[in-house]
């Protein structure tokens, strides 16, 4: 599998990464190498194999519905780059601002 520079651009956009054009070139080459290596998985007969996503096979592990202490508002906000009136400041989601 060979990745084109356009594909690299598209993937970077999906991943919310801003790449320089040198990085785009470099990643196109390096990721193509890695993907070519990964192509050997097609040599494995997996017709009878079930996918293993997690070895514990647990699903829907629920916590008890109990109220436990949580962080104070100041502590929650202590690492935020911007805050206002006790809230995180983010870019608008539906508008441009």
């Amino acid at each position: 599998m060979k990745l084109s520079q356009d594909q690299v651009k598209k993937v970077a956009n999906l991943a919310n990464l801003t790449l320089t054009s040198e990085e785009e070139d470099k990643y196109a080459d390096q990721l193509s190498d890695v993907l070519s290596y990964i192509d050997q998985l097609n040599l494995v007969d997996t017709k009878s194999a079930e996918p293993t996503f997690n070895v514990t096979d647990l699903s829907n592990v629920l916590a008890d519905d109990e109220i436990t202490p949580s962080l104070e508002q100041d502590a929650v906000l202590q690492n935020a780059s911007a805050k206002k009136d006790g809230f995180f400041v983010t870019k608008g989601v539906f508008e441009n601002e």
């Binding site: 990964i38 997996t46 194999a49 996918p51 293993t52 996503f53």
Partner: peptide
């Protein structure tokens, strides 16, 4: 990719 790799993981296990 992902689904295939998960099956190979099963064989390794």
């Amino acid at each position: 990719y992902f689904a295939k790799a998960a099956k190979v993981r099963n064989l390794i296990k």
